[in-house]
Every structure is written in structure tokens, then in C-alpha cells.
């Protein structure tokens, strides 16, 4: 699934590690999310949505 996580993270000036700490996941997981190798669980998607203050569908594109 395509997503705009990387752009959002870089927009905030965060490293993958810094974002991982805020989401309570590993840096490897953030990398897998950004590269589309891993689609997040619903709880993680909500945490991402809450952190960036955007709806889930504005971050993740199910058609991607």
C-alpha cells in the first residue's frame, strides 16, 4: 500500500528512529512502512494518523 509517511516524517524533520520511538515500533518497521513492504495494523495506523493529525485515508492509499 502506498503512503505518504516518508514525506510527512521529513516534513517534521524527524529521522526514522525518532518516528519509530514516537510510534513505539522499531526503526526497521518504519522503514518497511515507508517502502510499502509492510501495511500497518489498525492500531498502528491510528497511532500514525493521530501523530500527524491526518485521517488514515489521507496517509495511506489503498489503491496504491
Amino acid at each position: 500500500m502506498k503512503n505518504s509517511l516518508r514525506a510527512l516524517r521529513e516534513g517534521h524533520g524527524w529521522t526514522q528512529g525518532a518516528l519509530a520511538d514516537q510510534l513505539d515500533v522499531s526503526r526497521q518497521t518504519v522503514n518497511a512502512l515507508e517502502t510499502g513492504r509492510y501495511d500497518p495494523s489498525l492500531p498502528l495506523a491510528f497511532r500514525i494518523s493521530g501523530l500527524f493529525g491526518r485521517p488514515i485515508e489521507a496517509i495511506f492509499d489503498p489503491e496504491g
Binding site: R9, G13, W14, T15, Q16, G17, A20, D21, D24, V25
Partner: peptide
């Protein structure tokens, strides 16, 4: 901003 190092949590 891309770093392959482990995060604090890791």
C-alpha cells in the same frame, strides 16, 4: 534524515 542506526526504543 535516513539513518540505518537503531532507535532509542530499539
Amino acid at each position: 534524515l535516513d539513518s540505518s542506526g537503531a532507535s532509542r526504543g530499539d
